[in-house]
């Protein structure tokens, strides 16, 4: 049985996928998005220590897939009445693909809706191994300029696109692209343009737009890390609406936070 490093299990989430859901946050991510709101999940699949309100805490706990399944099944009754289920998020779920596979396959067997949130930053075999047990992929699309993508977040765009395109074609899997709207980084004129042009190649109906927020900022303090975006302003409603309209003028329904 696989063990996975989990840093949070959040019950009663309605913002990430259909129905009432539990989100399992897996530790470890190879990317370095400066706006990351879960910085404690970054880097290796190893526990990390932070200091919160003067108290040391270890973030990340090794759990077997059976333990995680037991935990998420505590809310089974809510998944059944709402059509909800379990979302594996991160970190980057593909960092712990073997563990993820065990969790997803068991939940899938039980008829519980499964979703994963990924950036698709590994060779496509990893994602491919999860898709037979996955109902929905929330696919993060961030920066589409090859050089910028490598430089700012450290992602290999070729991998990402291969994964994205494979997921789109995979039978029975719903793919929802999610675009974080970060001023100066992703929410630029050119980047939005590139994303729209890329999406036009596929049969995509809906995208989620995730406007920048500062909710994660105190976590950088706990970790003693520098947070580059601490003075970054959030987007105004008008700016968000303009971006939404741009997507919609090209036939993509743009759902803010996935809440609409």
């Amino acid at each position: 049985m696989q063990k996975g490093l989990v840093f949070n299990i959040q019950r009663y989430s309605i913002h990430d996928g259909g129905g009432i859901r539990t989100i399992v946050f897996l530790k470890g991510c190879p990317l370095a998005c400066p706006w990351c709101s879960n910085p404690e999940s970054r880097k290796a699949v190893e526990p990390v220590q932070w200091i919160k309100n003067g108290k040391k805490e270890i973030i990340g706990e090794w759990k077997t897939s059976a333990e995680v399944i037991d935990e998420v099944l505590k809310d089974e009754i809510f998944y059944r009445t709402s059509g909800g289920g379990v979302t594996l998020s991160g970190g980057e779920v593909l960092m712990q693909h073997l563990f993820a596979k065990e969790v997803l396959s068991e939940l899938h067997y039980l008829g519980i809706n499964t979703a994963i949130e990924t950036t698709g930053c590994f060779e496509k075999e990893r994602l491919e191994s999860l898709l037979p047990f996955t109902d929905e992929v929330l696919f993060d699309i961030k920066i589409l300029d090859m050089t910028q993508a490598k430089k700012v977040i450290g992602i290999n765009l070729k991998n990402m696109k291969e994964n994205f395109e494979m997921a789109l074609q995979f039978p029975g899997v719903k793919v929802t692209p999610r675009i974080p709207l970060i001023p100066d980084y992703t929410a630029t004129e050119e980047n939005i343009e590139m994303i729209i042009n890329y999406f036009k190649n596929f049969d995509i109906k809906e995208v989620h737009l995730l406007p920048f927020h500062q909710y994660g900022s105190s976590k950088y303090d706990y970790l003693g890390w520098e947070y580059l975006l601490k003075d970054m302003e959030t987007l105004s409603d008008t700016e968000i609406d303009q971006i939404k309209k741009r997507f919609e003028s090209h036939g993509f329904y743009a759902n803010i936070e996935g809440l609409e």
Binding site: I14, G19, I20, I77, F78, R80, T81, S82, G83, G84
Partner: peptide
């Protein structure tokens, strides 16, 4: 989703 939550309450 609130209505679904209430159905779970019922069950």
């Amino acid at each position: 989703k609130f209505a679904d939550f209430l159905m779970a309450f019922t069950k």
